[in-house]
Design a protein around this nucleic acid. Structure first.
Lengths: 296, 296
DNA sequence: ACTCCTTGTGCGGATTGTCTGCACAGCGTA
DNA sequence: TACGCTGTGCAGACAATCCGCACAAGGAGT
């Protein structure tokens, strides 16, 4: 029941293949395979279901993986507490946020933390809201910053603790200078050229479903994985798009126009609730919340 | 940060010496010493204070030991959950109870569990209430059955969860047949010969402090580590004693006489609250409570 | 003051555990 | 059907761990 073995199982739950686990741990696949076999005999139960050339976790495997994440969390907490003999929070905190939240929240957060808590090292990764919850649950990050729409299409995990940060209005983005900045009716834009995010992402779904609810299928003229490229496309007058206000970098010459029927997403942070997050994580969280309170 | 290493630290916190830890784990002292040294470098902090030929835990050592116990508990929980694929609670539960509670509670509990939950294996150890809390906190047992007097000389640990079982009156024990069974005034027995438990134990303190409060110093004619020997001594007419009702085995020809100023102790079970005990432990606990409800 | 006992900790040497590289079997796809 | 990808065994190399022993240091008893 080595922590390394438990981490292998937890990673396997998230990554799906033995080879990916091996790559993540800088090991050979055979080493991972052997360790998982040892873990199976130690547990006295079938952890992996070998179906052909693929491997899946059995219910017992999922159970142990869940416990493993708690144990690994507790281990991280212990290490952090040893790093801070004075009681001052210290150690490593892994955060994931969606693209626009990194610019608007994570970067200021990093600056603030460097001043107030130099003993805390914060790593930030970009992660789409669609994948954030699972990654958090799998222990890949300690804090995620993600967003939900008010219609509540997401399921709330009771083992996760959530902390509201801010409300973010979705607006229409048009090239500057805009003819006028009054609220716009989406149905009037059925013939416009749209540019949106890559298929399957959070914002891609948002634009298409919103347009469909307005009664038309959007004509897609651009698909970009970065908002910067998308904004450049809009700036050039080649398309328009729907974006949350947070995603609009004011370096680009685009104009936001509010929607006639407003659409608001709620940005929030989340952590695992079990066990209680270590002091450093809690400090990052409260700093993050204190950053968003001045922002309306 | 091996679980073995963490257990060594946790055991060292409880046992005090490296040799005792080595004996408990069936290892040589040098092996334990080496592993603790590795743990110290892994933790990056001074865990042990080498003062002369003795070793004590530093604050950081105590911190890590506390985390270690949580981790080891979680590991035990995981193992138990893997042993019960059907959801039926299964696995090993370690219980400690004071002498008379074993006969009155633990033995019936074992019988009941063998019928209702054969997948649960229960081990019972005798432990004086004075040492029970510490042993529970150190992770040596999963459930303790202990007792407190109503005057509340014990400190309640908030990380421990307690479950009241029954109230137990302290009575005077005299040889049978007794002249009468009416309530007795302790002050009238200042010249009697007393037999009590070994020095430093819970019941030894009880008798002496109660007699002193009644205004006299008891004349000790017998000290026994087992209640059976003490009862035999009383039975033979050589002494009298104070015992909780629960401690009186009716195989011995002794008579209980209530005290004029009643003294009641409260028997209760306790578990560690963090993390939540595994299903098997919770089952044992509820079975134990269901056993005591018919007993007034 | 002296000895004796106990405690913790190093040092070889044997044992065990773990990783790599390769080879092989099974399955999906072009 | 042939190729690529998956996971898994096997020998060999390497590291971790443990034992037995010896040694230093502090306490208890004479």
């Amino acid at each position: 029941m080595n922590p390394t073995r438990l981490e292998m199982l937890s990673l396997l739950d998230g990554l799906g293949t033995v080879r990916a686990v091996a790559a993540a741990l800088h090991l050979s696949p055979s080493a991972v395979s052997a360790q998982l076999a040892v873990l199976e005999t130690e547990a006295g139960a079938e952890l992996l279901h070998r179906t052909g050339r693929r491997v899946t976790l059995t219910p017992a495997g999922h159970t142990l993986a869940r416990h493993a994440r708690i144990i690994l969390d507790q281990l991280r907490t212990a290490k952090q507490e040893l790093q801070s003999p004075t009681g001052e929070p210290a150690g490593h905190v892994r955060m994931a946020a969606f693209s626009s939240a990194i610019r608007a929240l994570a970067i200021p957060l990093g600056k603030r933390l460097a001043e107030t808590h130099p003993a805390i090292t914060l790593t930030v990764a970009e992660l789409d809201p669609m994948a954030a919850h699972q990654a958090l649950r799998r222990g890949e990050y300690d804090i995620i910053v993600t967003a939900d729409f008010i219609d509540g299409s997401t399921t709330l995990d009771p083992t996760l603790a959530t902390f509201p940060l801010l409300a973010d209005d979705v607006v229409l983005v048009v090239p500057s200078p805009a003819p006028d900045l009054s609220p716009v009716n989406l149905a009037d834009l059925a013939d416009a050229a749209w540019s949106i995010d890559m298929p399957g992402t959070y914002l891609s779904n948002l634009v298409t479903s919103t347009c469909r609810r307005a009664g038309f299928e959007p004509i897609i003229t651009g698909r970009f994985s970065s908002y910067e490229l998308l904004l450049t496309h809009v700036e050039a007058g080649l398309s328009i798009s729907l974006l949350p206000s947070l995603a609009i970098d004011h370096r680009y010459h685009v104009s936001p126009r509010p929607l006639h029927t407003p659409l608001t997403r709620h940005v929030y942070a989340a952590t695992r609730g079990t066990p209680t997050p270590p002091p450093a994580t809690r400090t990052v969280l409260t700093t993050l919340q204190s950053l968003t309170t001045p922002i309306p």
